[in-house]
């Protein structure tokens, strides 16, 4: 996928873009729907995300992380901007490693792909109660308080499940020494 993105970046290659569109737009639409957009809005947001990918392609380089990370970050930022209309939200840097540290942590020297594989593996192995809260936060876009009321759990339980899940992911990333 990074190849396609690079072809778009280097030559404004429309065919490469169509292939990217086919691969990513349906997942972006699906993401927007899970976040609460109706199908029409989700379609528009998916179109807009991919149009942004086209327009910003020149800013992408594979050193900045995988195409998926980059495209997802654009979608995530657009989603908050459009679906939540909040003034104080935090756009995440699309550029994945803008500040390479002089003394990189072990997980920073790991390839992005390796890191992605590890994260996916740990997510798949999480106990259901942990993966449920993680998915509600990331995929459905619910706050801790909303998750707590959806699952009828104390807020503290929701937060501790989130923490446990992340610690496993962090450990898995750190052990690749």
């Amino acid at each position: 996928m990074a190849d396609l993105l690079q072809r778009v970046a280097a030559n404004g290659d429309v065919e490469a873009f169509r292939a990217l569109f086919q691969d990513y737009a349906p997942r972006v639409k699906s993401y927007m729907m899970r976040q609460g957009a109706d199908p029409r809005t989700a379609e528009e947001l998916a179109q807009e995300t991919l149009l942004t990918v086209w327009r910003k392609a020149a800013l992408y380089s594979d050193e900045k992380g995988s195409a998926t990370t980059w495209i997802f970050t654009i979608a995530r930022n657009l989603r908050i901007d459009r679906l939540r209309k909040e003034v104080a939200w935090q756009p995440l840097p699309e550029d994945n490693d803008e500040q390479p540290s002089p003394d990189p942590a072990p997980d920073e020297v790991m390839s992005e792909k390796e890191r992605g594989d590890r994260v996916r593996k740990i997510l798949a192995e999480l106990p259901p109660d942990q993966s449920e809260v993680v998915s509600l936060a990331y995929v459905e876009g619910l706050s801790h308080a909303e998750i707590a009321s959806r699952l009828s759990l104390p807020l503290g339980t929701v937060k501790s499940r989130m923490r446990l899940a992340y610690h496993k992911i962090r450990d898995a990333l750190e052990d690749l020494r």
Partner: peptide, 14 residues
């Protein structure tokens, strides 16, 4: 952020 990316990757396409 990688958690979000991994979950996004697995979404059923619409």
């Amino acid at each position: 952020q990688q958690i979000g990316v991994a979950l996004f990757d697995k979404l059923e396409p619409a």
